[in-house]
Design a protein around this nucleic acid. Structure first.
Lengths: 132, 132, 132, 132
DNA sequence: GTGGTCTAGACCACT
DNA sequence: GTGGTCTAGACCACC
């Protein structure tokens, strides 16, 4: 049996007040698109993931279902689940996350009537205050 | 009866897949911290808000309760609800939103292994593609 | 017209989230039982109280009604409202407030499984922390 | 299903003139901070609490929501609600209740122009009278 | 008029 | 099973 990926960072903490499967999907998606889990790598089984993180197996299964829907992972029946080897899918996903993050940032600025520049200044002031 | 604030932007659309009261809270919070609804201004009554947006009065009431808990609005028994006159609370809320937005942005970049600069470039390319 | 009592301490602040008339009743009751407003003293009229504190006259009226029910004040039609001259009523009210306060304190201690002594220690530690 | 805590004292009586959910919150908070319900213990489900006390499930839910906001309990989606395992939160809550009780007591004494000692004497006299 | 609370019952997402 | 939300409609206290 081939080695499987370290799916989630070891320090990964579940926030019980949000859907667990969503937190898993989001974290794994980012691990894939940033290259931490390379194309073709085998993922742990649903049962392994569930046991490793102490969650219900159905929660782990749903995590993989969502990732499979987006095409980032592929399941070969009887063999296991693997990161897609289709580079375009990964690139597109990376771009989508980046674009959405920028869009959210600009939207927040606009709703406050601030420029991105002013937002960053507030952030720096705040960080500075908390250090001091 | 004193005039009341135009609470939400006219184009405001309810997203049925998220809690209504949370969407209201978030939108009103931003209207207050950006100054669109000034300190001391009276807000429409619970029943007015409910009627204007076609939701149940208890949903509107919950919206105001949440905002009151954060201190941005104050309820005067039997008279109505008003934006706080405490400028510090408003300033703090504005700062908190801005700081969180910047933090989210940086965190997204880090999780993708990108710099903020690279994120912005992806955004610009994407916008350019969609225009073309 | 005889002078009227300074009904409430000048620094008295209305908490809008509690019934105003209750806050007035409680504050005036204590002013009477501690002797700050002596027996027989004339109280300001309902309208004066309402104007002085910026509240609805019906709120001021209800304040007096409640105090009259307890016997601490008496209204002579056409002449005004006065603190009772019946010393027993005042003494009883003072005792009732004191007894209730002690009872509340002991009850709080019991519900925490603490002795009064331990409660006071926590209080002193806390005050000390906040000074330091 | 794991056992759940005996949430409220058996003799607990609802006072119909105060909000039910507030009475529940206050009583449960004290059960937690005095250790009667230990950290990590599962609480009865919203529906169980509602049935046991004859109130609407939404009233029970509101009780838990309030306690969760203060951090004393934590909700695990789909699994139930549990007392926090964060000892600091519990300790802080206990201290806050104790400090507030002492403060209320001193404030009552001050408003009557009495010392704490005199208050206690009045209480003892009163108890003695009622026994006799 | 105002907001606050409670009930009843439905629907939903998550585990 | 769990809690979360929404609706509908009632009642109440306060101003």
């Amino acid at each position: 049996m081939e080695p499987t990926a370290e799916l989630l960072p070891q320090h990964f903490q579940i926030n019980p007040s949000l859907p667990i499967y969503e937190q898993f999907v989001e974290a794994i998606r980012r691990r894939i698109v940033c290259g931490a889990i390379p194309p073709g790598m085998r993922l742990p089984s649903v049962r392994e993931l569930a046991a490793a993180r102490g969650v219900n197996p159905t929660t782990a299964a749903r995590t993989y279902q969502e990732l499979e829907r987006s095409g980032l992972i592929v399941t070969y029946r009887g063999q296991g689940t693997f990161v897609t080897r289709d580079g375009d899918i990964i690139t597109d996903a990376r771009r989508a996350i980046a674009v959405q993050a920028v869009r959210d940032f600009f939207e927040a600025a606009a709703s406050l009537g601030l420029t991105a520049e002013q937002m960053l200044n507030m952030y720096r002031e705040d960080s500075h205050d908390n250090e001091a």
